[in-house]
Simulated scan of single mutants.
Amino acid sequence: MPDERSTDRSTTLYEALGGAEALSRLSATFYEAVLADPLLAPVFAHFTPTHVEHVAVWLAEIFSGPADFTARHGGHHALLTAHLGLAITEEQRLRWMELMTAAVEKELPDDALLRRRVVEYFDWGTKIAKDVSASPPGTDLGEPGPTPRWGWDGLA
């Protein structure tokens, strides 16, 4: 049984989960499953291999690592804009969560609280992505603010 006290809670989630290398593995494992999944593959019809690394960079920033997604890829607004028009269904969102949870279990340290916090972020974020995806491309999203940060207590 995973030990909820096995990771130093004074570290960021980014540090506790293993940094950029772990997030790159997580992203690669997840997208390998997504692209093979009949329900999700159509959502990623315009997928490119750089998507895997962009997701890892986004997650690093979310979990209090380097703010490279904001610096290099346009930050929170760009991420939300990329989801416009995808029309993600609840069934697709839940399948996405299943595949990501499996990737988390495979690629992240065996620490129940760490894994739970990471999966909680994905649940929160996929609900936002699903809502945004219902709007057509070009929709004015306004200014969503800075990239959120997720820590040991959830949304910081």
Results as ranks from 00 to 15, higher is better:
Leu39Tyr: 05
Leu84Glu: 13
Leu79Tyr: 04
Ser10Val: 04
Val52Asn: 11
Phe47Thr: 05
His54Lys: 15
Ala36Val: 05
Leu79Cys: 11
Glu53Phe: 08
Val43Ile: 15
Leu13Gly: 06
Thr29Leu: 07
Gly65Thr: 03
Thr50Trp: 06
Thr11Tyr: 02
Ile62Trp: 01
Leu17Arg: 05
Ala67Val: 07
Pro49Gly: 04
Ala78Met: 03
Glu15Asp: 10
Thr11Pro: 00
Ala71Pro: 03
Val43Cys: 10
Phe30Asp: 13
Thr29Ser: 13
Thr89Glu: 02
Leu79His: 10
Ile62Thr: 09
Phe47Pro: 07
Leu59Asp: 02
His46Thr: 11
Gly75Tyr: 08
Leu23Glu: 09
Leu40Cys: 12
Tyr31Cys: 15
Leu13Pro: 10
Pro49Ala: 03
Leu84Gly: 12
Ala41Val: 05
Arg25Val: 14
His83Ile: 13
Val34Pro: 11
Tyr31Gln: 11
Ile88Gln: 03
Thr50Glu: 14
Gly74Asn: 10
Ala78Arg: 05
Ala45Glu: 15
Ile88Asp: 03
Tyr14Lys: 00
His83Phe: 12
His77Asn: 00
Val52Leu: 07
Thr29Arg: 12
Pro42His: 00
Ala82Ile: 06
Glu15Tyr: 02
Thr7Asp: 02
Glu91Pro: 01
Ser27Cys: 09
Thr48Ile: 01
Asp68Lys: 04
Val43Ser: 14
Phe30His: 11
Asp68His: 09
Ala67Lys: 14
Leu17Lys: 06
Trp58Gln: 13
Asp8Glu: 10
Ser24Ala: 15
Leu79Arg: 15
Thr48Met: 06
His83Gln: 14
Pro42Gln: 01
Thr12Val: 03
Thr50Asp: 15
Ser10Ala: 13
Ser10Arg: 15
Leu79Met: 15
Tyr14Val: 02
Gln92Lys: 05
Leu80Ile: 09
Val43Asn: 10
Leu23Gln: 02
His76Ala: 00
Ala67Leu: 10
Leu23Pro: 04
Trp58Thr: 09
Ala87Asn: 12
Thr70Ser: 15
Val57Asn: 03
Thr7Glu: 12
Leu79Asp: 03
Leu40Ser: 11
Ser24Arg: 12
Gly85Leu: 09
Ala71Met: 02
Tyr31Glu: 14
His46Trp: 00
Phe47Cys: 06
Leu94Trp: 01
Glu53Ala: 14
Ala82Tyr: 01
Glu53Trp: 08
His73Leu: 14
Ala60Cys: 08
His76Lys: 01
Ala16Asp: 07
Ala33Gly: 11
Leu40Asp: 11
Glu53Pro: 02
Gly85Met: 08
His51Leu: 11
Thr50His: 13
Ala71Val: 05
Ala33Ile: 00
